[in-house]
């Protein structure tokens, strides 16, 4: 403990004509239990009042705070500085539109993804809310929840070399969504319908099994398994 931390932080505000992209250095005294959330706020309070970054829940559940921490995408709020070396380099996620400094517009990307993949339960019936709900197998419900746990943080997209090269690639997040809805009997789409949204090289066939997604997902979703599963189903549907 009692380390002095050296931060190298990307600074650039596209809205400010005086600003140009560069790295800026800050130093900070480490304290016990310091997370990057605490550290960045201290830097902003005392050294750089205009430093932009995004935190919302600061508890690792909302997916706002992903950034490149020493090169890898992670949730900053739940990264303890003691797990990092003395020198900490912070960059915004490169795959998303830059807002300023460490803040990126991943929400916009995710919304577009949702629209494209139609990530909602497609059903025609109106439910009678006075009646007892339809039963669902308890294991199936838990399985759906496991796939539903994605927080749309974008780490998987940034960790994916394919997504780096091809802007339209839907990423592990999108493929996992399809797996989630495919598992859900309330969604009445069939495999042909899913093929229509992920059955191409910007969809599941674009994935080159690089597994960066699997290794960075903060929710430890079974992305590898889900992508393989959807690939099998879609390859079959395509034949």
């Amino acid at each position: 403990m009692k380390r002095t931390l050296n931060f190298n932080i990307f600074r650039y505000n596209p809205q400010d004509p005086a600003s140009h992209p560069h790295m800026e250095a800050y130093t900070l005294q480490e304290t016990a239990g310091m997370t990057l959330f605490i550290a960045l706020n201290q830097i902003r309070e005392l050294q750089a009042p205009s430093l932009a970054f995004d935190f919302v829940c600061r508890a690792g559940v909302c997916g706002s705070c992903s950034m490149l921490i020493n090169g890898r995408p992670r949730l900053a709020c739940r990264t303890l500085t003691e797990s990092l070396p003395d020198t900490i380099t912070l960059l915004p996620l490169p795959t998303f539109e830059l807002i300023a400094d460490l803040s990126v517009n991943s929400g916009k990307w995710m919304r577009a993804m949702s629209e494209r993949l139609e990530t909602w339960v497609h059903s025609v019936e109106e439910t009678d809310l006075d009646r007892i709900e339809l039963p669902m197998d308890p294991d199936l419900a838990e399985h759906i929840y496991e796939l539903d746990r994605c927080i749309e943080c974008g780490c998987c997209v940034t960790a994916c070399g394919t997504a780096q090269m091809r802007e339209d690639f839907i990423g592990a997040v999108g493929i996992n969504k399809i797996a989630r809805f495919k598992a859900d009997p309330r969604d009445q789409r069939n495999d042909q319908d899913y093929y229509a949204v992920v059955g191409d090289d910007d969809g599941v066939f674009g994935c080159m099994s690089l597994l960066g997604c699997q290794d960075v997902c903060p929710k430890e979703l079974s992305l590898q398994t889900q992508i393989a599963y959807i690939r099998r189903k879609m390859a079959f549907a395509g034949l």
């Binding site: 909602w120 059903s123 709900e133 669902m136 308890p138 419900a141 929840y145 859900d184």
Partner: peptide, 18 residues
Amino acid sequence: PKAVRELAAWGVPWNRVR
């Protein structure tokens, strides 16, 4: 109860009785 049932129909994977 209506709210929970509506959400169930819309896709919330509520934990179920076993």
